[in-house]
Simulated scan of single mutants.
Amino acid sequence: MSGLNPCNGFSKFDISKIVAFSEMYPDDFNMNDSGCILGELKIFYHSVKEDDRFLNLDGICHLAQVMVETGKNLSFPLFYRILKLALVLPVSTATVERCFSKMKLIKTDLRNRMGDGYLNNAMVCAVEGETFDEVTNEDVMVRFLAMKGRRGEF
């Protein structure tokens, strides 16, 4: 992802690193795309080096914004797809790491025999804590009563 850096007039822009990055995701880039990426990157690099709108970029997020504003995302769809993948990747990785940290807290030595259903429910409650903070006890009771008839009254 470091090869995508547009800072200092694309001084760290490395086509070989970008091609290697795209090859790590064969589900996102098929064989036809892989053949076209190298050519598209070379054309993109030479076109933005001469464009004043791409001079003072401070990161790949800013590069993506300027690409959309100038319409270059339509001219260079494969590069734009690589750029979007690079922007989304840290967020998805952090979410997975957060889930594993929560699971480590839930599944301890004392609770190592819990079933899959219980573990799944506990994980949802732990990971989506902000959502469950908005649910009141009354909402839970109303939902529980609506499930089926009970013998006793609440």
Rank of each mutant, 00 (worst) to 15 (best):
N56C: 09
L55R: 15
I82K: 01
V142C: 00
T108S: 11
D109I: 06
A126W: 04
L105I: 04
F54P: 02
M24N: 10
I37N: 01
E128N: 12
L57V: 04
F79Q: 00
L63A: 06
R81L: 09
V68E: 12
L78G: 02
I18S: 03
M67P: 01
F54E: 06
T93P: 00
K107C: 08
N73W: 00
E23A: 11
G39N: 15
N30K: 02
G35K: 14
G71A: 08
E134W: 04
L57K: 05
S22V: 08
M123I: 09
I60K: 10
F76V: 01
S101D: 08
Y80C: 01
I37L: 13
A64R: 08
N112R: 15
A86I: 04
E128W: 06
G35D: 11
K42A: 11
R113D: 12
T70K: 10
S75Q: 12
E50Q: 10
T131A: 13
E128S: 12
M31N: 14
A86V: 03
L55V: 14
L89Y: 15
L63K: 05
N112A: 13
S34H: 07
E128A: 11
L110F: 12
P26S: 08
R111N: 14
M114A: 02
F132A: 02
Y118Q: 13
T70Q: 13
C61Y: 12
K107V: 07
C61W: 05
H46T: 11
S101M: 07
E138Q: 13
T131D: 06
T93H: 06
M114Y: 12
I60R: 09
K107L: 10
R143G: 08
L83D: 00
C99P: 00
T95H: 06
I60P: 05
C36Q: 15
E23Y: 08
R53I: 02
R81E: 09
N120R: 15
E23S: 13
R111G: 00
F29T: 02
R113K: 14
V135R: 09
V66F: 00
C36H: 11
S22I: 01
M67A: 04
V91E: 09
K49A: 07
E128M: 10
V124D: 13
E130K: 11
L89Q: 15
G117C: 06
T108M: 10
C61A: 12
T95G: 08
S22M: 07
L89I: 09
F100E: 05
P77F: 06
F44A: 01
V127A: 07
L83V: 01
T93D: 10
M24E: 13
G115T: 08
E130F: 04
E40I: 02
V66A: 04
R81T: 11
L63N: 03
L78T: 00
T131K: 15
Y25L: 04
D33C: 07
R81K: 15
Y45T: 03
C99N: 09
T93I: 14
G117W: 01
S92E: 13
T108A: 07
P26T: 04
N137S: 10
G35H: 13
A64V: 03
V124W: 01
S34P: 00
L110S: 15
F144W: 07
E69W: 02
I60S: 05
V66R: 10
G115V: 03
F29H: 01
M24T: 12
T131L: 14
E50Y: 03
S34K: 11
